[in-house]
Amino acid sequence: MSPTDAHTLLSLLRGAPFSAPYLGETIDWIRRSVRHEVEQAPFPLDLEDETLRRLEAYAGGTEPGAAELAQRLADVRHAVATVRHEHYTALVIGQSSRSPAARVSRGSDVLKLATAVGRARVTAGPTGAIVIAAGHSGSTVFRPITSESAHRLRNAARERKEESVRRAVAIRQLLAKHVRMADWSDPSTAGVVVDSPDETVSVSWWDSEPIGGPGPWDEGGVRPLCLALLSGRGYTVTLAADGSLSVSG
């Protein structure tokens, strides 16, 4: 095994989640022991290769945590064999490939995810695509892309985010002239909140001391007023499932 592959395997293994908390310490202990032996050996030895051999021997035995370590070693090897590209687009199944929600993921991050979820939930698809099942929440498809495409998509995402921030500032200035805005310097504040958590702008109501039941946002006319103000300025406004307003240009 090449030093690079051995280093990658060990790095992923050390970062993998274990149900037996002592396995992380066991791996470190084996690595320290091997390092000492490598330094004392009369002939050259590769630290990573020797550590992997020792870990595989441990996993094949009956020591505490051996079975789980064997499973994690298999997960790591499967992840390294499956994730072969430096960049991917990540899409939740059911989303359009043109959706702004598509994001660029580094191959190193996909490696860590594939290791964490285990080989049973990682499937290699055609053309290098990878499907990672996420239990009841659906699956994510990682499609390989070139470095140039990854750079272009990241730039586009950054531009969309910057536009979202500018839109949030304009919306905040517009609404502040007509409705009460939340004042974050006041611990007992209540009012309209404008936020841009991703590439959209959300308008909602915040009350640090909710009265319980419908308030100004739901039945006091604040939400319809905000909707009318935003629509009048040409924004596209939709009502989100949580009652907030989602605003796009």
Rank of each mutant, 00 (worst) to 15 (best):
A101P: 00
W217Y: 08
V141R: 15
L111A: 04
E48N: 14
V83I: 13
L225D: 01
R103D: 06
G24W: 00
A57L: 13
L12R: 15
G94D: 04
H136W: 07
T189V: 00
T238K: 03
W205K: 04
S137R: 15
P210H: 14
A70C: 12
R180K: 11
M1Y: 09
S208L: 08
T238N: 04
I211M: 14
S139H: 01
H36A: 11
V192E: 03
I93C: 05
A240T: 01
T238L: 11
V76N: 12
R143T: 13
A67S: 09
T115G: 14
L113N: 15
G61K: 04
V83F: 03
G234F: 03
Q40H: 12
S105D: 08
L245Y: 03
S185L: 06
A66G: 10
G138L: 06
K177N: 09
V192A: 06
S99F: 02
A241R: 10
V110W: 00
R32W: 10
V169K: 12
A190N: 01
E56D: 06
E50D: 10
R53M: 01
I145W: 15
V247F: 07
E50C: 05
E56K: 11
V83E: 05
I30D: 00
R35T: 07
S244W: 06
S231D: 09
A81S: 14
D109I: 10
A120Q: 02
R180G: 10
L113Q: 15
C226Y: 03
T115R: 13
Q71F: 04
S196H: 06
S99P: 05
G61R: 02
L230C: 04
A20H: 14
E63M: 12
H36P: 01
A102T: 13
A57C: 07
G213C: 14
Q71G: 15
A190E: 11
E162S: 08
V201Y: 08
G65R: 02
A168L: 08
S149H: 13
W217S: 04
L113Y: 08
V76I: 09
V38T: 09
V38I: 03
L245T: 02
H78C: 01
S2A: 07
V110Q: 02
V34R: 09
V110P: 08
A190V: 04
R167S: 15
E163P: 03
T236Q: 02
R54E: 09
R98I: 00
C226P: 07
G138P: 06
H7L: 15
G221M: 03
E148F: 13
R84D: 12
I211D: 06
Y88N: 07
D195A: 12
V34Q: 12
D207H: 07
R98V: 00
I30R: 01
V237H: 00
A134Q: 10
V83Q: 02
T115I: 08
P216H: 08
S208R: 15
I132F: 01
R223N: 09
T82Q: 03
E159P: 05
S202T: 05
A133L: 02
R167V: 14
A240S: 10
G118K: 10
R223C: 08
I27C: 00
R54G: 00
V122I: 02
T26H: 01
E37V: 09
V80G: 01
P42G: 02
L175P: 14
D183V: 04
